[in-house]
């Protein structure tokens, strides 16, 4: 067991963890943040995507200890209280959520993209969600949601 110290959604955590524990298991089982999903446990489905140091990472392929000292953002940390992030808002509005199992990862993907690129092209949006499997929506509505969120964020920024 080793002591792991990291910040998750602006809250600092310090916990003893076995060296083999993945970040995903740490988030779900040790911290109780079950919004991050485990669809395959082997880096294939992308449902476990979280932000580590501002970058989307597959938390099932990452050891918890490797997140030492980093800032981790999970789906629970995206909305500010009851105020949804524009990507979340657009996902709801555009019907980009059916079963919802990939939704947390798709939101993380979209937020990361728009943080770095306020007017993504179609291909950039497809690229940003292509590491995550969605079996319900056919992706069209997720793409629409991210484009719509980008538009709203641009409007807000440029008044």
């Amino acid at each position: 067991m080793k002591i792991l110290t990291l910040t998750i959604n602006d809250v600092s955590h310090s916990k003893a963890v076995p060296p083999t524990m993945t970040l995903l298991d740490f988030l779900r089982d040790e911290v109780g943040l079950t919004g991050t999903k485990n669809g395959c446990d082997s880096g294939e489905c992308g449902c476990c995507t979280v932000m580590v140091g501002g970058k989307p990472m597959l938390s099932c392929l990452m050891l918890a200890l490797d997140a030492e000292g980093h800032e981790v953002t999970t789906i629970e940390g995206i909305a500010k209280g009851n105020d949804l992030h524009p990507v979340q808002e657009a996902m709801v509005e555009k019907g980009a959520i059916q079963c919802g199992y990939c939704t947390p990862a798709m939101v993380i993907n979209g937020v990361h993209l728009l943080d770095n690129n306020d007017s993504p092209t179609d291909d950039e949006v497809k690229e940003c969600i292509s590491a995550t499997v969605c079996r319900c929506t056919g992706y069209n509505s997720i793409e629409r949601a991210i484009h719509s969120a980008a538009e709203k964020m641009r409007e807000k920024q440029h008044g």
């Binding site: 079950t34 789906i75 995206i78 949804l84 979340q88 959520i97 919802g100 939704t103 947390p104």
Partner: peptide
């Protein structure tokens, strides 16, 4: 009318509990 599914807000916030999320 086009109505977002009523559980989508919970899902988009990571609050919806799936079987394996129950403790």
């Amino acid at each position: 009318k086009p109505v977002p599914l009523m559980d989508s807000r919970a899902k988009v916030m990571g609050q919806a509990l799936y079987t394996d999320d129950i403790r």
